[in-house]
Design a protein around this nucleic acid. Structure first.
Length: 279
DNA sequence: ATGCCTTCTGGGAGAAGA
């Protein structure tokens, strides 16, 4: 299975580019974030013409997530247990949940397309919402893997965290002043790893960014950030045979400000062949 | 410590993004 994640920054603005990529690169499962539309506005037919089924979740022009898959998916969910809500600038227990998560099982893998809240500014209500959202995600992950350590679980998407200094190439984003690099955000990411998830791309693609801001010549200067990840449980990590960050997708006409991240999974079993042991 | 771009919107200045 070739699994990809891509913050597309509006599905309607660049559906041709996205479908072309999925076909050209033989993607089997494409998790998308920031589709920026309601479900009824999603261009399903463009994906179906190319041989994909799509499950989409979106309420408005903000956020929105989807999973396109060549094979039908099962057990579609539009939130993970305990996922906090946010409305009108405040987080609260009874605020409606935003469209930031969609999960489905495909090819034996439980895949979640995730758009982690941005945080906006240190100390902003959105920043605490981000941390609470990540804590709930960690709890769901930990409990899922305690219940079934062999579960093939993949959390993929835009995590809006640069886990290490090497993942931040923007001079103006500095610890102490900026979201995405603060110790509590990095700790939240580390907690996901302690819960049993591995970044399955970094060992194969040790350097490189996944996002460059549109303005200030960020891309020509290569002042980007690595904030889009594919995190896998051991069952997923043990199946990884390759990974690519498609930097070229930031070029050309009407690019998203993020690029696709892709992994190849050989899910036929641990001792069916002599594939390299990466993890 | 931000918004030089880009997206969205009963509609056009404002909100959001990282």
């Amino acid at each position: 299975m070739r699994l990809a994640t891509w913050n597309v920054n509006s599905i309607r603005a660049r559906v041709d580019r996205i479908v072309d990529f999925a076909v050209r690169e033989h993607i089997d499962v494409l998790a998308m974030q920031e589709i920026k539309c309601k479900v009824e506005q999603f261009p399903f037919e463009r994906f179906e013409e190319a041989g994909f089924h799509v499950e989409a979740h979106g309420f408005s022009q903000w956020n929105g997530v989807a999973i396109a898959s060549r094979e039908p998916v099962e057990n579609v969910r539009t939130a993970f247990p305990g996922m906090p809500g946010f409305e009108k600038g405040v987080e609260s227990l009874d605020a409606p949940q935003e469209a930031r998560a969609i999960g489905a099982t495909v090819g034996g893998v439980e895949v979640w397309s995730l758009y982690v809240p941005n945080g906006r500014a240190l100390g902003d209500p959105h920043y605490f919402y981000k941390l609470d959202w990540l804590a709930a995600l960690e709890q769901y992950t930990r409990e899922s893997l305690i219940a079934d350590p062999d579960l093939a679980l993949a959390l993929v998407g835009d995590f809006n965290i640069a886990p290490t200094d090497a993942d931040n190439g923007v001079p103006q984003i500095v610890q102490g002043f900026s979201t995405h690099v603060s110790p509590p955000e990095r700790e939240a990411f580390a907690a996901l790893e302690r819960a049993g998830l591995l970044d399955v791309v970094r060992p194969l693609v040790p350097t490189g960014f996944t996002y460059w801001d549109y303005k200030q010549l960020r891309f020509p200067r290569n002042e980007g950030m690595r904030i889009d990840f594919i995190l896998g449980s051991p069952a997923v990590a043990n199946a990884v045979t390759g990974a690519v960050i498609h930097r070229n997708e930031r070029k050309g006409e009407l690019p998203s400000d993020h690029v696709p991240v892709v992994v190849d999974l050989d899910l036929t079993g641990p001792d069916d062949d002599d594939r390299p042991m990466i993890f």
